[in-house]
Amino acid sequence: MVVAVPGFIATLVLNAFVLDDYDAYGEVPVPGSASVHLPRGEVTISLHADVIGSPSGGGLPVPPLSVTIAPPNGVAEPVVTENIGSTTTVNNDAHVRVWVAQVAVDGDYNVTTDGKVGGFIDPRLAFGHGSQLGSLVWVFVGMFAAGLVGTIVASKWLGSVRRKEAPAASIPGFEFPVTPVVSPAVTSTPHQPGGEGVRLERLKTIAALRDSGALTDAEFESEKRRILDGN
């Protein structure tokens, strides 16, 4: 989790500002036309314009736009699908992905653009590609999720271990030791307490257990009667 969070943030920044080559293949003014060399595969088409300050609402608005990509002779026309992305702004220069084109053959394509861009400064459509490390973001997301699950599992396991290591509680109704404590011999034979002495010691023991909370009052009375009855 410690590695995943900064890695996720760093990857987002790199993808947005360093590795996103949105105008790698050239730009065409809106409205306007030009020839653009496009490679085979996926090509991003972004609206690119200058802005004064931050774009209104936090993003570059996408006006009604149209684009026509005429292929070389004998080549299939690229398949263009709408794919609106987030706005990236650096030093009053903003761009936002509008379409993604699937180009069948590498070649020079004639591009014609149009749109309602009266309120934009130097609007154009940029042809390029996204970051090749875009999927790395999901690697860090997976690392964070795995770390979170591991933390929860470890916490539960540690709690169960601590419960097993806790001292066992006193069990009501168990047999109390009846062997009296014998004082060390000095010069005479050790004193062996009689029956009354044993009962007295046992009564003191259960009284102490009751005072400490190990025995309930009902258990204390039951054990007391058993001792007094000589059992």
Rank of each mutant, 00 (worst) to 15 (best):
G74A: 02
G32Q: 01
E77A: 15
I69D: 05
P78M: 00
N92Q: 12
S46L: 05
E42T: 15
V90G: 00
P31G: 00
S33Q: 08
T88K: 09
P61G: 03
L38R: 01
G58I: 04
P55D: 11
L65D: 13
T68Y: 06
G59E: 12
I69N: 08
N83G: 07
G58T: 06
T44G: 12
S46E: 14
A76L: 09
N83P: 01
P64E: 13
S46F: 04
V51W: 13
H48T: 05
T44L: 13
V30S: 01
E42C: 04
V67E: 06
L65T: 08
P71A: 04
E77F: 01
P55Q: 08
P71N: 05
V80S: 05
V62N: 12
P55M: 13
H48D: 12
P63L: 00
G57Y: 11
I84H: 12
G58E: 08
G59D: 14
P71T: 10
E82P: 00
S46Y: 05
G32N: 05
E42I: 12
A34E: 06
G41Y: 04
A76C: 05
I69P: 02
H48E: 09
T88Y: 02
L38E: 00
H48I: 02
E77V: 09
A49G: 10
G85E: 14
L60E: 08
T44K: 08
G85K: 06
P78I: 00
V51S: 11
A49N: 03
I84M: 12
V62D: 10
V90A: 10
V67H: 06
N73D: 13
V67M: 13
S66W: 02
V80T: 11
H37L: 10
S56N: 15
H48K: 10
A70P: 00
E42M: 14
V67K: 11
V79L: 07
S35L: 11
V28I: 13
A70I: 09
V79I: 11
N73S: 14
V90W: 00
V75C: 01
S54V: 14
H37D: 11
G32R: 04
A76S: 14
G53A: 04
V28D: 09
T89A: 07
I84C: 07
V36F: 09
V30T: 02
E77W: 03
R40A: 15
N92F: 03
I52C: 10
N91P: 00
V30N: 04
V28Q: 07
P72S: 03
V67F: 03
V28K: 11
E82F: 02
V80K: 04
V28R: 15
E27H: 10
T81F: 02
G85N: 09
L60G: 11
A76G: 04
N92R: 03
T87D: 08
V36G: 06
E42P: 02
S54E: 14
E42F: 10
S35P: 00
P71G: 03
P61K: 05
S46A: 15
E42H: 10
G59P: 00
T81I: 10
G85C: 08
S54W: 15
S56L: 13
V67T: 05
I84N: 09
P55A: 12
D50C: 03
P63M: 01
H48G: 02
P71Y: 07
S66C: 09
V43K: 05
P61S: 07
V79T: 14
N73G: 08
E42A: 15
R40T: 15
L47C: 13
T89S: 05
